[in-house]
Protein backbone atom coordinates (compact mmCIF):
# COMPACT_ATOMS: atom_id res chain seq x y z
CA UNK A 1 0.00 0.00 0.00
CA UNK A 2 2.74 2.40 0.99
CA UNK A 3 4.57 1.61 -2.22
CA UNK A 4 1.47 1.89 -4.33
CA UNK A 5 0.77 5.33 -2.95
CA UNK A 6 4.34 6.44 -3.54
CA UNK A 7 4.12 5.28 -7.14
CA UNK A 8 0.83 7.09 -7.57
CA UNK A 9 2.24 10.30 -6.08
CA UNK A 10 5.41 10.27 -8.15
CA UNK A 11 3.50 9.32 -11.27
CA UNK A 12 1.04 12.14 -10.77
CA UNK A 13 3.80 14.68 -10.16
CA UNK A 14 5.61 13.59 -13.32
CA UNK A 15 2.36 13.73 -15.27
CA UNK A 16 1.66 17.27 -14.06
CA UNK A 17 5.18 18.48 -14.81
CA UNK A 18 5.11 16.98 -18.28
CA UNK A 19 1.69 18.50 -18.85
CA UNK A 20 2.90 21.93 -17.85
CA UNK A 21 5.92 21.65 -20.14
CA UNK A 22 3.83 20.43 -23.10
CA UNK A 23 1.30 23.19 -22.69
CA UNK A 24 4.09 25.73 -22.36
CA UNK A 25 5.41 24.62 -25.75
CA UNK A 26 1.86 24.71 -27.23
CA UNK A 27 1.30 28.19 -25.84
CA UNK A 28 4.52 29.37 -27.41
CA UNK A 29 3.92 27.75 -30.79
CA UNK A 30 0.25 28.38 -31.37
CA UNK A 31 -1.30 31.66 -32.34
CA UNK A 32 -1.83 33.81 -35.37
CA UNK A 33 1.80 33.20 -36.27
CA UNK A 34 2.27 29.46 -36.09
CA UNK A 35 5.63 27.97 -35.24
CA UNK A 36 6.82 24.40 -35.30
CA UNK A 37 8.30 23.21 -32.01
CA UNK A 38 11.59 22.79 -33.81
CA UNK A 39 11.59 26.48 -34.65
CA UNK A 40 11.20 27.44 -30.98
CA UNK A 41 14.81 27.28 -30.01
CA UNK A 42 16.07 29.29 -32.94
CA UNK A 43 13.25 31.79 -32.42
CA UNK A 44 14.16 32.27 -28.80
CA UNK A 45 17.86 32.60 -29.32
CA UNK A 46 17.22 35.01 -32.12
CA UNK A 47 19.26 32.87 -34.47
CA UNK A 48 16.26 32.19 -36.66
CA UNK A 49 15.60 33.71 -40.02
CA UNK A 50 12.33 35.37 -39.07
CA UNK A 51 12.98 38.31 -36.78
CA UNK A 52 9.28 39.16 -36.41
CA UNK A 53 8.47 35.67 -35.22
CA UNK A 54 11.30 35.94 -32.74
CA UNK A 55 9.88 39.20 -31.45
CA UNK A 56 6.38 37.76 -31.02
CA UNK A 57 7.80 34.78 -29.25
CA UNK A 58 10.18 36.63 -26.97
CA UNK A 59 8.20 39.78 -26.21
CA UNK A 60 4.59 38.56 -26.23
CA UNK A 61 4.07 34.85 -25.98
CA UNK A 62 6.87 33.84 -23.68
CA UNK A 63 6.18 36.32 -20.85
CA UNK A 64 2.47 35.64 -21.18
CA UNK A 65 2.91 31.89 -20.88
CA UNK A 66 5.24 32.25 -17.92
CA UNK A 67 2.77 34.61 -16.26
CA UNK A 68 -0.07 32.13 -16.79
CA UNK A 69 2.10 29.43 -15.29
CA UNK A 70 3.19 31.43 -12.24
CA UNK A 71 -0.15 33.06 -11.53
CA UNK A 72 -2.03 29.81 -12.16
CA UNK A 73 0.18 28.11 -9.62
CA UNK A 74 -0.46 30.95 -7.20
CA UNK A 75 -4.20 30.56 -7.70
CA UNK A 76 -4.12 26.84 -7.04
CA UNK A 77 -2.09 27.37 -3.91
CA UNK A 78 -4.24 30.24 -2.64
CA UNK A 79 -7.30 28.05 -3.10
CA UNK A 80 -5.61 25.21 -1.26
CA UNK A 81 -4.70 27.47 1.67
CA UNK A 82 -8.20 28.92 1.93
CA UNK A 83 -9.84 25.50 1.75
CA UNK A 84 -7.56 24.23 4.47
CA UNK A 85 -8.06 27.34 6.56
CA UNK A 86 -11.86 27.27 6.44
CA UNK A 87 -11.97 23.46 6.30
CA UNK A 88 -14.36 24.00 3.44
CA UNK A 89 -13.94 22.28 0.07
CA UNK A 90 -15.55 25.05 -1.95
CA UNK A 91 -13.54 27.95 -0.58
CA UNK A 92 -11.35 29.89 -2.98
CA UNK A 93 -10.15 33.45 -3.48
CA UNK A 94 -12.85 34.24 -6.05
CA UNK A 95 -15.78 32.57 -4.31
CA UNK A 96 -15.00 34.12 -0.94
CA UNK A 97 -14.93 37.60 -2.46
CA UNK A 98 -11.23 38.09 -1.81
CA UNK A 99 -10.42 38.62 -5.49
CA UNK A 100 -13.26 41.14 -5.77
CA UNK A 101 -11.98 43.02 -2.73
CA UNK A 102 -8.55 43.20 -4.28
CA UNK A 103 -10.07 44.30 -7.59
CA UNK A 104 -11.97 47.07 -5.85
CA UNK A 105 -8.85 48.38 -4.13
CA UNK A 106 -6.90 48.28 -7.38
CA UNK A 107 -9.69 50.12 -9.21
CA UNK A 108 -9.73 52.84 -6.55
CA UNK A 109 -5.98 53.29 -6.75
CA UNK A 110 -5.92 53.22 -10.56
CA UNK A 111 -8.71 55.73 -11.03
CA UNK A 112 -7.48 58.18 -8.44
CA UNK A 113 -3.81 58.00 -9.31
CA UNK A 114 -4.34 57.98 -13.07
CA UNK A 115 -6.68 60.93 -12.61
CA UNK A 116 -3.76 62.82 -11.13
CA UNK A 117 -1.55 61.66 -13.98
CA UNK A 118 0.63 59.61 -11.69
CA UNK A 119 2.08 56.50 -13.27
CA UNK A 120 0.98 53.41 -11.34
CA UNK A 121 3.77 50.92 -10.87
CA UNK A 122 3.33 47.22 -10.27
CA UNK A 123 4.28 47.34 -6.63
CA UNK A 124 1.61 49.93 -5.82
CA UNK A 125 -0.95 47.75 -7.56
CA UNK A 126 0.10 44.71 -5.59
CA UNK A 127 -0.01 46.61 -2.32
CA UNK A 128 -3.46 47.98 -3.14
CA UNK A 129 -4.66 44.51 -4.12
CA UNK A 130 -3.24 43.09 -0.91
CA UNK A 131 -5.04 45.71 1.16
CA UNK A 132 -8.30 44.95 -0.66
CA UNK A 133 -7.81 41.20 -0.28
CA UNK A 134 -7.21 41.60 3.45
CA UNK A 135 -10.31 43.77 3.79
CA UNK A 136 -12.53 41.11 2.19
CA UNK A 137 -10.77 38.40 4.15
CA UNK A 138 -11.47 40.31 7.35
CA UNK A 139 -15.17 40.39 6.58
CA UNK A 140 -15.23 36.71 5.70
CA UNK A 141 -13.39 35.90 8.94
CA UNK A 142 -15.86 37.90 10.98
CA UNK A 143 -18.75 36.13 9.29
CA UNK A 144 -17.18 32.71 9.63
CA UNK A 145 -17.27 33.08 13.41
CA UNK A 146 -21.02 33.52 13.27
CA UNK A 147 -21.97 31.07 10.54
CA UNK A 148 -20.79 27.51 10.98
CA UNK A 149 -22.29 26.07 7.82
CA UNK A 150 -20.16 25.59 4.77
CA UNK A 151 -22.84 26.79 2.36
CA UNK A 152 -23.55 29.96 4.33
CA UNK A 153 -19.89 30.91 4.38
CA UNK A 154 -19.76 30.63 0.61
CA UNK A 155 -22.96 32.62 0.21
CA UNK A 156 -21.54 35.38 2.42
CA UNK A 157 -18.37 35.36 0.34
CA UNK A 158 -20.35 35.70 -2.88
CA UNK A 159 -22.30 38.60 -1.34
CA UNK A 160 -19.08 40.34 -0.36
CA UNK A 161 -17.93 39.82 -3.93
CA UNK A 162 -21.08 41.51 -5.24
CA UNK A 163 -20.70 44.46 -2.88
CA UNK A 164 -17.09 44.95 -3.98
CA UNK A 165 -18.06 44.72 -7.63
CA UNK A 166 -20.80 47.29 -7.09
CA UNK A 167 -18.30 49.67 -5.49
CA UNK A 168 -15.91 49.06 -8.39
CA UNK A 169 -18.65 49.91 -10.92
CA UNK A 170 -19.44 53.01 -8.94
CA UNK A 171 -15.85 54.17 -9.10
CA UNK A 172 -15.58 53.41 -12.79
CA UNK A 173 -18.45 55.79 -13.59
CA UNK A 174 -16.30 58.61 -12.25
CA UNK A 175 -13.24 57.67 -14.27
CA UNK A 176 -12.03 59.06 -17.59
CA UNK A 177 -12.77 57.20 -20.79
CA UNK A 178 -9.21 56.04 -21.20
CA UNK A 179 -9.13 54.72 -17.69
CA UNK A 180 -12.34 52.81 -18.24
CA UNK A 181 -11.01 50.98 -21.24
CA UNK A 182 -7.90 50.16 -19.30
CA UNK A 183 -9.86 49.04 -16.27
CA UNK A 184 -12.49 47.16 -18.17
CA UNK A 185 -10.03 44.93 -19.98
CA UNK A 186 -8.16 44.24 -16.82
CA UNK A 187 -11.20 43.59 -14.65
CA UNK A 188 -12.39 40.83 -16.98
CA UNK A 189 -9.20 38.97 -16.26
CA UNK A 190 -6.48 38.34 -18.81
CA UNK A 191 -2.87 37.29 -19.04
CA UNK A 192 -2.24 39.56 -22.00
CA UNK A 193 0.22 42.41 -22.08
CA UNK A 194 2.75 40.97 -19.64
CA UNK A 195 6.26 42.36 -19.81
CA UNK A 196 9.42 40.62 -18.65
CA UNK A 197 9.61 43.10 -15.79
CA UNK A 198 6.13 42.05 -14.63
CA UNK A 199 7.11 38.42 -14.89
CA UNK A 200 10.25 38.99 -12.83
CA UNK A 201 8.38 40.75 -10.01
CA UNK A 202 5.51 38.26 -9.89
CA UNK A 203 7.84 35.28 -10.03
CA UNK A 204 9.82 36.67 -7.13
CA UNK A 205 6.75 37.25 -4.99
CA UNK A 206 4.94 34.03 -5.88
CA UNK A 207 7.96 31.78 -5.56
CA UNK A 208 8.99 33.20 -2.19
CA UNK A 209 5.43 32.95 -0.89
CA UNK A 210 5.05 29.41 -2.21
CA UNK A 211 8.31 28.48 -0.52
CA UNK A 212 6.92 29.84 2.74
CA UNK A 213 3.75 27.80 2.24
CA UNK A 214 5.81 24.69 1.64
CA UNK A 215 7.65 25.42 4.86
CA UNK A 216 4.36 24.98 6.70
CA UNK A 217 3.61 21.44 5.44
CA UNK A 218 3.98 19.89 8.85
CA UNK A 219 1.76 22.22 10.90
CA UNK A 220 -0.75 22.21 8.02
CA UNK A 221 -0.98 18.43 8.16
CA UNK A 222 -1.88 18.70 11.84
CA UNK A 223 -4.20 21.67 11.34
CA UNK A 224 -6.43 19.75 8.98
CA UNK A 225 -7.28 17.26 11.75
CA UNK A 226 -9.15 19.94 13.67
CA UNK A 227 -8.15 22.59 16.21
CA UNK A 228 -8.20 20.42 19.31
CA UNK A 229 -6.00 17.70 17.84
CA UNK A 230 -3.66 20.19 16.20
CA UNK A 231 -3.00 22.04 19.42
CA UNK A 232 -2.48 18.77 21.27
CA UNK A 233 0.19 17.92 18.69
CA UNK A 234 1.96 21.14 19.58
CA UNK A 235 0.84 23.42 16.76
CA UNK A 236 0.70 27.12 17.57
CA UNK A 237 -2.73 27.71 16.05
CA UNK A 238 -2.73 31.48 16.26
CA UNK A 239 0.47 32.04 14.34
CA UNK A 240 -0.31 29.31 11.83
CA UNK A 241 -3.70 30.86 11.09
CA UNK A 242 -2.17 34.30 10.70
CA UNK A 243 0.43 32.91 8.33
CA UNK A 244 -2.23 31.18 6.24
CA UNK A 245 -4.33 34.33 5.95
CA UNK A 246 -1.39 36.55 5.05
CA UNK A 247 0.15 34.13 2.55
CA UNK A 248 -3.13 33.40 0.77
CA UNK A 249 -3.75 37.17 0.73
CA UNK A 250 -0.38 37.86 -0.91
CA UNK A 251 -0.98 35.19 -3.54
CA UNK A 252 -4.50 36.43 -4.32
CA UNK A 253 -3.31 40.04 -4.43
CA UNK A 254 -0.52 39.21 -6.83
CA UNK A 255 -2.90 37.45 -9.20
CA UNK A 256 -5.44 40.26 -9.17
CA UNK A 257 -2.82 42.98 -9.59
CA UNK A 258 -1.45 41.35 -12.74
CA UNK A 259 -4.26 39.41 -14.33
CA UNK A 260 -7.44 40.60 -12.68
CA UNK A 261 -9.87 38.31 -10.93
CA UNK A 262 -9.84 34.76 -12.30
CA UNK A 263 -12.69 32.55 -11.24
CA UNK A 264 -12.94 28.90 -10.15
CA UNK A 265 -9.29 27.88 -10.53
CA UNK A 266 -8.73 28.24 -6.79
CA UNK A 267 -11.70 26.04 -5.94
CA UNK A 268 -11.39 23.40 -8.61
CA UNK A 269 -7.67 22.72 -8.71
CA UNK A 270 -7.11 21.63 -5.07
CA UNK A 271 -10.06 19.32 -5.32
CA UNK A 272 -8.93 17.78 -8.58
CA UNK A 273 -5.49 17.29 -7.07
CA UNK A 274 -6.85 15.56 -3.97
CA UNK A 275 -8.70 13.18 -6.23
CA UNK A 276 -5.69 12.61 -8.45
CA UNK A 277 -3.28 11.97 -5.57
CA UNK A 278 -5.90 10.27 -3.39
CA UNK A 279 -4.60 11.94 -0.28
CA UNK A 280 -4.78 15.17 1.67
CA UNK A 281 -1.14 15.23 2.70
CA UNK A 282 0.07 18.81 2.33
CA UNK A 283 3.57 17.73 1.40
CA UNK A 284 2.16 16.34 -1.85
CA UNK A 285 -0.77 18.68 -2.31
CA UNK A 286 1.18 21.93 -2.09
CA UNK A 287 3.40 21.20 -5.10
CA UNK A 288 0.48 19.44 -6.80
CA UNK A 289 -1.82 22.45 -6.44
CA UNK A 290 0.86 24.73 -7.82
CA UNK A 291 1.49 22.52 -10.84
CA UNK A 292 -2.22 21.85 -11.28
CA UNK A 293 -3.01 25.56 -11.24
CA UNK A 294 -0.27 26.21 -13.80
CA UNK A 295 -1.58 23.47 -16.05
CA UNK A 296 -5.16 24.67 -15.73
CA UNK A 297 -4.33 28.29 -16.52
CA UNK A 298 -1.98 27.49 -19.42
CA UNK A 299 -4.70 25.32 -20.90
CA UNK A 300 -7.44 27.92 -20.41
CA UNK A 301 -5.27 30.73 -21.73
CA UNK A 302 -4.48 28.71 -24.82
CA UNK A 303 -8.18 28.12 -25.47
CA UNK A 304 -9.01 31.77 -24.72
CA UNK A 305 -6.55 32.85 -27.40
CA UNK A 306 -7.31 30.17 -29.97
CA UNK A 307 -11.02 29.38 -29.86
CA UNK A 308 -12.32 32.52 -31.55
CA UNK A 309 -9.00 33.81 -32.91
CA UNK A 310 -8.24 36.55 -33.62
CA UNK A 311 -10.78 37.66 -30.99
CA UNK A 312 -9.57 36.85 -27.51
CA UNK A 313 -11.91 35.50 -24.86
CA UNK A 314 -11.48 36.53 -21.22
CA UNK A 315 -9.61 33.99 -19.19
CA UNK A 316 -12.43 33.79 -16.62
CA UNK A 317 -14.80 32.61 -19.33
CA UNK A 318 -12.62 29.60 -19.93
CA UNK A 319 -11.83 28.88 -16.27
CA UNK A 320 -15.54 29.06 -15.43
CA UNK A 321 -16.43 26.63 -18.19
CA UNK A 322 -13.98 24.05 -16.84
CA UNK A 323 -14.01 24.99 -13.14
CA UNK A 324 -17.67 25.48 -12.34
CA UNK A 325 -18.69 21.89 -13.18
CA UNK A 326 -16.05 20.68 -10.74
CA UNK A 327 -17.58 22.84 -7.99
CA UNK A 328 -21.05 21.51 -8.75
CA UNK A 329 -19.66 17.99 -8.66
CA UNK A 330 -18.09 18.62 -5.23
CA UNK A 331 -21.34 19.95 -3.83
CA UNK A 332 -23.33 17.03 -5.18
CA UNK A 333 -20.82 14.61 -3.70
CA UNK A 334 -20.97 16.29 -0.29
CA UNK A 335 -24.74 16.16 -0.39
CA UNK A 336 -24.71 12.48 -1.19
CA UNK A 337 -22.21 11.72 1.56
CA UNK A 338 -24.34 13.53 4.09
CA UNK A 339 -27.44 11.67 2.97
CA UNK A 340 -25.69 8.30 3.00
Amino acid sequence: MRQRRAVRAIGSLIFLTMGVLCLLVCNLCMGSVKLAPSELWSGLTGGGTDAAAGMILWEIRFPRAIAAMILGGALGLAGYLLQTFFRNPIAGPFILGISSGAKMAVAVVMVFLLGRAVRVNALTMILAAFAGAMLSMGFVLLLSRRVRSMAMLVVSGVMIGYICSAVTEFIVTFANDADIVNLHNWSRGSFSGMTWEDVAVMSGIVLITSGAVFGMVKPLSAYQLGDAYASNLGVDLRSLRTAMVVLSGILSACIVAYAGPISFVGVAVPHLMRGMFGTSRPILLIPACFLGGSLFCLFCDLLARMLLAPTELSISTMTAVFGAPVVIWIMARRGRERAG
Binding site: P89, G226, Y229, R274, I283
Partner: peptide
Amino acid sequence: RLRGEWMTCEDVVATGRYPYTGRFG
Protein backbone atom coordinates in the same frame (compact mmCIF):
# COMPACT_ATOMS: atom_id res chain seq x y z
CA ARG B 1 -14.52 14.40 15.61
CA LEU B 2 -11.15 14.27 13.97
CA ARG B 3 -11.40 15.46 10.39
CA GLY B 4 -10.02 12.80 8.16
CA GLU B 5 -11.08 13.61 4.63
CA TRP B 6 -8.99 11.71 2.11
CA MET B 7 -7.18 9.94 4.92
CA THR B 8 -6.89 6.22 5.49
CA CYS B 9 -6.98 4.83 9.02
CA GLU B 10 -3.25 4.37 8.84
CA ASP B 11 -2.80 8.05 7.91
CA VAL B 12 -4.83 9.03 10.94
CA VAL B 13 -2.81 6.82 13.26
CA ALA B 14 0.37 8.19 11.71
CA THR B 15 -0.52 11.74 12.74
CA GLY B 16 0.33 10.64 16.27
CA ARG B 17 4.01 10.62 15.27
CA TYR B 18 3.88 14.36 14.61
CA PRO B 19 5.92 15.45 17.66
CA TYR B 20 8.75 13.11 16.69
CA THR B 21 9.22 13.85 13.00
CA GLY B 22 11.38 16.53 11.42
CA ARG B 23 10.66 19.81 9.69
CA PHE B 24 8.66 18.27 6.86
CA GLY B 25 7.15 15.39 8.79
